[in-house]
Design a protein around this nucleic acid. Structure first.
Lengths: 339, 339
DNA sequence: CTGAAAGCGCTTACAG
DNA sequence: CTGAAAGCGCTTACAG
């Protein structure tokens, strides 16, 4: 592999001149620049980023850290979109993307550490969806810029980008209320996830707006899987037969719930309406097509990366939490209330 | 950030000794090693991989190159699994994963180049699903080890790992034949993808085995989207009303096809059976649950990475194509033939 | 406009 | 068992 020395020798100049010609910054005569570039071309020379990283303070790599990838995590459907968004922005700046994931929460800390502490990245985007997550992962001690794709950054509420889960849930439940539903059960998820808490908050807000009281018996907790939705629906059905709608914290549980409802002989949405959350790809294909809430995952990834680069470039010191709108997608699974 | 000099000074030894103590290889007295490690700990010292990469020939990064990520690509559902598999193996060896994707096929080459030519990786896993892909991407000139997750590596059929698409299709179509179907339409995909060609080959093989002749009118080409499956089903229905089953090259088109069949008043599987391919997560939740073929994506990623590390470590010079079995998953969408 | 020289942070023979 | 020194491939003031 050709080095800068080879190029310099071939072109009959110093390595300094080659370096300058390549960074096409300061004063280099057009003539020598052309000569150098020709040799670079001929020798197929590519500067070693490792060497460059040693002199400049930059590695031209950003990290994307995902603490726990699993079917368990409800945001999975969006993960690929997040990645693509971050990668798009990185590419646009000739940056590379180092990906670090952990198989289990217990491994997350070491994955973070490895990535962030080898001085291999100029900054990182962290997927941080649990309260206290950045700290528990030891990110607080890092001195790289980082932004969180989620609710919790090392800088408190700052340097964070996430969707407006609360508003999304609010819209979904308002939609059900508008349709005349007054008994709206909830299939929720594990509590440590802030997005879940926000969605529940949105639900309560919507009911409160309309002065509809809700019963604690209306809440059943699932674990994001269709199976748990299936079971939760059964519990709800038995415990609160008066419900005419169910708000599910994610689409997969909504699908499971609908299967159960059908198994019980109920028609969706005629007998009972169901609304999901996430708009996973199969939501539109489901029978009946699922009314749900979509977050702009690709855009979230792009914005997170964009902000990270502003931090890296010291254009900004920090930024206030960016909240992206969540969109209600009305499909067939929500209908008019039975009354 | 502490450097090796800081540690050396604090510990009262040379940088060489620090280096040795850390690589815990050659002869260093237990006493000095302990002293050094204590200082390392106290100063929170982490060696710079950039500097290390400059001296050693290693960067401790492998690349994962995905030429085109899009809904268009039928293998999308598996992408995350591939990534996870590769990453698991990398993690196990304390390697990092650099991810390069391209938004469009036209950008693929530059994405590859950037990743592979900056000397930033010790090797790479390439997702290469089109014939001639590695060459068109300029990978042939690289002098890093690489293995292809797909059918086409720069080394011809070698250094490749993929699922047995042909065998998978064979099983699926045999299954339909076993159920008594003799008129089996096909919704296929764009031809440059080798996996598609293999699946079609499996289909033809199955029919040939049983001496069932097939008509070219039975084939309709889709583009992997549910919509195209929807349209293809309509064409098939009109053109060949005698068909009692449809073999779809992927699940998403199978879902679209089923929606169309139902819209036409046909029952699946009672009136017409449908089989998909991929076993995407929603296949099991679909109504009716989809009979399909699954490839072991996570394992494929792991094996590809595993092989890559063997190449990097020069334990092997190359390896023969590894073909993983594809599994037939029988669900409700395939049933007995009409009659 | 161009080049000599130092330095980035590590590792590796080579002496001792 | 330990250290001095060179070198990995680049960039950056500093002279000229």
């Amino acid at each position: 592999m050709a080095t800068i020395y080879d190029v310099a020798k071939e072109a009959g100049v110093s390595t300094a001149t080659v370096s300058k010609a390549l960074s096409n910054t300061p004063y280099v005569s057009e003539e020598t620049r052309a000569r150098v570039l020709a040799v670079v071309e001929r020798l197929n020379y590519v500067p070693s980023l490792a060497a460059r990283g040693l002199t400049k303070a930059r590695t031209y790599i950003i990290g994307l850290v995902i603490p726990y990838v699993s079917d368990y995590l409800f945001s999975d459907p969006h993960l690929l979109e997040f990645i693509r968004g971050v990668e798009q922005e990185a590419n646009a700046r000739d940056y590379n993307l180092l990906l670090a994931t952990a198989r289990a929460p217990s491994e997350a800390a070491s994955a973070y550490q490895r990535l962030l502490r080898t001085q291999y990245v100029d900054g990182a985007v962290l997927v941080a969806v649990r309260r206290g997550e950045p700290d528990s992962l030891g990110v607080g001690k890092m001195d790289y810029p980082c932004v969180a794709l989620g609710y919790h950054s090392p800088y408190g509420p700052d340097n964070t980008v996430h969707a407006d889960d609360r508003q999304g849930a609010l819209k979904a439940v308002r939609h059900l209320l508008d349709l005349g539903h007054r008994g709206i059960g909830v299939i929720s998820g594990p509590p440590p996830l802030t997005a879940v808490e926000e969605r529940l908050a949105g639900y309560r807000l919507a009911l409160a707006e309309r002065g509809v009281a809700c019963d604690e018996g209306w809440f059943v907790q699932g674990d994001f899987t269709p199976e748990s939705g299936f079971q939760a629906a059964a519990i709800l059905l038995e415990r609160c037969p008066q419900l005419t709608a169910i708000f599910c914290i994610n689409d997969r549980m909504a699908m499971g719930a609908i299967q159960r409802l059908r198994a019980e002989g109920l028609r969706v949405p005629d007998d009972i309406a169901v609304v999901g959350f996430d708009d996973i790809p199969s939501a539109a294909l489901f029978e009946p097509p699922l009314t749900t809430v979509r977050q702009p995952a690709l855009e979230m990834g792009r914005i997170a990366a964009h902000k990270l680069f502003q931090l890296i470039g010291r254009e900004i010191e920090s930024f206030e939490s960016i909240v992206l709108p969540a969109e209600l997608i009305v499909r067939a699974s929500s209908g008019n209330a039975r009354r």
